[in-house]
Simulated assay, not measured.
Amino acid sequence: MRQSFFDEGYLNCQYTQIEALEKDSSPYFIVEIITLYFRDSPNVIAALEHELMKAAVRDIKKEHSELRAKFETYFQLMRRAGPTEQAVNSS
Rank of each mutant, 00 (worst) to 15 (best):
M1E: 08
R2H: 05
S4D: 14
F5P: 11
F5C: 14
F6R: 13
D7R: 13
L11K: 12
N12Q: 11
C13K: 14
C13H: 11
Q14I: 05
Y15G: 07
T16G: 00
Q17T: 04
I18Y: 02
E19F: 03
L21A: 02
E22V: 00
K23N: 02
S25Q: 01
S25K: 05
S26V: 00
Y28S: 08
Y28L: 10
F29Y: 08
V31R: 05
V31N: 10
V31A: 04
V31K: 04
E32T: 04
I33H: 02
I33T: 01
I34H: 06
I34P: 00
I34V: 09
I34K: 06
L36T: 08
L36K: 06
L36W: 08
L36V: 02
F38T: 06
R39S: 03
D40Q: 05
S41M: 11
V44S: 10
V44I: 13
I45D: 08
I45G: 10
A47R: 14
E49G: 15
E49A: 14
H50E: 15
L52A: 14
M53F: 11
M53P: 00
A55W: 07
V57H: 10
R58P: 00
R58N: 08
I60K: 11
K61N: 07
E63C: 02
E63P: 00
H64K: 03
S65N: 02
S65F: 01
R68C: 07
K70Q: 09
F71N: 11
Q76L: 06
Q76E: 13
L77A: 03
M78Y: 05
R80M: 10
R80Y: 09
R80T: 09
A81S: 12
A81Q: 08
A81W: 04
G82Q: 01
E85S: 15
E85K: 14
E85W: 10
E85H: 15
E85M: 14
Q86I: 12
A87S: 10
A87E: 11
A87I: 14
V88H: 12
V88C: 10
V88I: 15
N89P: 02
N89Q: 14
S91V: 15
S91D: 15
